[in-house]
């Protein structure tokens, strides 16, 4: 039997090309496996072979989605593999978005089975879990061995057309699909069983978990902007020079609140970024590129806005747990209310 052919997608970092300074790397195809592909090949043994690896910078993909997608699709088409594997991306947001988007597109447009792997909080999960199988991984590359093992196993199952069981049995993230199955007890009996368990305060598993709609209705617009107080919040990690509170470059455990009342324009003398998830050179040169203090000061002067709040709030958004970000923002929001802030400009990198 001939081996199945696999094409693997990775970013510039895992290809060993570079970090954030190389995040604009354009799509490139190389023969055979690269980086984590070696571990995949080890797990796939003789059943399948990674014939090519496609590498693309995370910023390049996300900033040029259509173009990147089309280039990569034509590379995959040339190889005509039996399976396409992207990542794993762990908790890297842009990498996750790229993996989810390209894997979905390969499956949809080329009809080639595709999988990827991510941590449950990666924004790529919610965006693409409906389209493809996303194997759940740990939040960092420390989970690489396990991720590669489960992705390889799952990939081979798909290739061999084996039956795919439920998300919890196979280790992929729930896709929100329903499947008809035969069970011994009929519905009414199962429902009564559950109800009895519930009354006895015993554990039971619902067969129909309600979807969580984590949405917030839009707040009302500002009626008179010339009287409004505007505050800046950022996940772009802008801090006073030398990062006095040592906000972490990734997986932030805290946020900062800094006085900008004496600044009309930020410069490399006074502000920089603490963010470790993008090339910091541009923000370090001029932090107005992330938090537009200069322009807001002008607008304050011309009375386009009432006032720029005296403080800005900042944290680094890369790899930061959603629970942390929520807790930071809940505290920040309370302060903003007591300081009479009317509206917020929140910038992300």
């Amino acid at each position: 039997m001939s081996k199945y052919k696999i094409v693997h997608y990775i970013n510039q970092f895992y290809a060993g090309i570079g970090g954030e300074d190389m995040a604009n790397y354009e799509p490139e195809k190389r023969e055979g496996f690269v980086g984590p592909g070696q571990a995949f090949q080890g797990n796939l043994k003789d059943e399948a072979e990674i014939t090519a690896t496609i590498i693309c910078g995370d910023s390049y993909y996300n900033e040029n989605m259509e173009e990147a997608k089309n280039k990569i699709l034509s590379m995959v088409k040339e190889e005509n593999p039996d399976l396409f594997i992207a990542g794993p991306a762990f908790n890297a947001g842009r990498y996750g978005m790229a993996c989810g988007d390209i894997a979905s597109s390969v499956e949809k447009e080329l009809g080639i089975k595709s999988i990827t792997g991510m941590y449950i909080e990666n924004p790529g999960v919610d965006s693409y879990k409906k389209n493809i199988y996303i194997i759940e991984t740990k939040n960092s590359a420390a989970g690489m061995r396990k991720a590669v093992k489960s992705m390889s196993k799952f990939g081979l199952k798909l290739l061999n057309n084996e039956e795919i069981l439920s998300p919890s049995e196979e280790g992929y993230i729930k896709r929100g699909l329903r499947k008809n199955i035969f069970v011994e007890k009929r519905g009414s009996e199962r429902a009564v069983d559950m109800l009895i368990k519930k009354l006895k305060k015993e554990e039971f598993t619902t067969e129909f978990p309600m979807p969580k709609f984590d949405r917030v209705p839009p707040s009302p617009a500002i009626k008179d902007m010339s009287k409004a107080k505007i505050a800046i919040v950022t996940s772009g990690g802008i801090v006073p020079i030398n990062n006095p509170d040592h906000i972490e470059a990734s997986s932030a455990s805290k946020y900062g609140k800094y006085d900008i009342s004496r600044f009309k324009d930020l410069t490399c003398e006074d502000h920089e970024t603490a963010h470790g998830g993008y090339d910091p050179s541009y923000a370090n040169e001029d932090a107005d590129r992330v938090i537009p203090i200069d322009v807001l000061r002008d607008m304050e002067k011309s009375n386009r806005i009432g006032k720029l709040h005296n403080y800005f709030y900042t944290t680094t958004g890369n790899g930061t747990a959603v629970a942390n970000a929520k807790a930071f923002a809940a505290e920040i929001a309370q302060e903003l209310i007591s300081d009479g802030v009317d509206a917020v400009i929140l910038t992300s990198t």
Partner: peptide, 26 residues
């Protein structure tokens, strides 16, 4: 973060490059 602030009734303008992420997070 956007949602936690917006929840209190303060409108938030989210300025970001990757619009799909912003849509996904709400």
């Amino acid at each position: 973060m956007v949602k936690e602030i917006e929840k209190t009734g303060i409108p938030v303008a989210h300025l970001c490059t990757i619009v799909p992420i912003s849509k996904t997070v709400g």
